[in-house]
Computed example of a mutant assay.
Amino acid sequence: MIQKGQNVVIGENVTLGENVVVGHNVVIYEGTEIGNNVIIQDNAVIGKQPTRAKASILPKVKKLTATKIGSGVTVGTSAIIYANAEIGNDVFIADLATVRERVTVGEKTIVGRGVAVENDCTVGKNCKLETNCYITAYSDLGDYVFVAPYVVTTNDNYMARGKERLDKFKGVTIKDGGRIGANATILPGKTIFEDGAVAAGSIVTRDVSSESLVVGAPARELRKVPNEQLLRNQ
């Protein structure tokens, strides 16, 4: 059974599973695959093709393949999921979140209100991306990663100037169990290794070792993460 609200637009060749609820003013673009027991709330857009700005340095791309939404997923009000994104089972995508093209989100992950996951990112399973954090393009997050509100990740050391930057874009890598506190900033290409932790408000200018807690601007190791806090002991 499919429950649809008013003014819903569903494109050609869209596949809808059983017990799908679609709110008012939802747009689902052609070819999108949606699993069972999915809730798509009002004004959400699924499968949107990206639009390239005239001044963009990104290469032109042809029409992307369709979006895939697993079973048990909730997509919040006014959230946007772009084409060629893959959303795993039981993912929760909150109101006003954006998941860009060629992004993979693992099962049971929470993408919080207003979160932006830019293009070409991988997010693992059982992650928590909290309100208004920013995951820059070309980033790789493992499983059980925690990103607190207003965290900023970056991928351009040249800050949009100089042709030498064009082949050097690199997002951040957060290995399994990595955690980042509120308002922290992670500079391009940096890796937070397994169970590494970044304190609130810190600026990460170099890699964070496994099981280390770093603090400050620039961030330095303060101590090791307490044993009872390690992922393997949860």
Rank of each mutant, 00 (worst) to 15 (best):
Gly88Thr: 01
Cys133Ile: 02
Ser212Trp: 04
Ala160Pro: 03
Arg220Leu: 09
Asn37Tyr: 11
Asn19His: 13
Ile203His: 09
Thr65Arg: 15
Phe169Thr: 06
Lys68Val: 14
Asp207Ser: 06
Ser210Ile: 05
Asn13Ile: 03
Gly124Tyr: 03
Tyr134Asn: 09
Lys128Glu: 07
Pro50Gln: 09
Pro149Val: 04
Pro188Met: 02
Asn227Gln: 15
Ala53Glu: 10
Thr32Phe: 04
Met159Arg: 06
Tyr82Ser: 07
Arg102Pro: 04
Cys133Lys: 00
Gly72Ser: 08
Gly171Cys: 10
Ala79Gln: 02
Arg223Asp: 09
Asp95Met: 11
Asn227Trp: 11
Arg165Ala: 12
Thr205Asp: 05
Tyr158Ser: 07
Pro218Asn: 12
Glu12Ala: 13
Glu211Met: 12
Arg52Asn: 10
Asn119Lys: 09
Ala137Tyr: 08
Gly72His: 07
Ala55Arg: 13
Tyr138His: 14
Lys128Ser: 10
Gln6Arg: 15
Ala66Thr: 09
Glu211Phe: 13
Arg179Glu: 12
Leu58Cys: 06
Pro188Asn: 07
Tyr158Thr: 10
Asn183Tyr: 14
Glu194Cys: 08
Val8Lys: 03
Lys63Val: 10
Lys60Ser: 14
Thr191Ser: 06
Asn36Gln: 06
Asp42Val: 13
Gln234Met: 15
Ala160Val: 12
Val152Ile: 14
Leu166Trp: 12
Asn36Ser: 08
Ile93Leu: 09
Ser210Met: 08
Thr191Gln: 05
Asn157Val: 07
Ala137Gln: 11
Cys133Gln: 04
Glu228Met: 14
Pro149Gly: 03
Ala44Gly: 02
Lys125Leu: 04
Glu30Asn: 10
Ala160Ser: 13
Pro226Phe: 12
Ile81Leu: 05
Lys62Thr: 15
Ala83Val: 03
Asn7His: 15
Val123Met: 01
Gly88Ser: 00
Arg232Gln: 15
Leu187Met: 11
Glu118His: 08
Asp167Val: 03
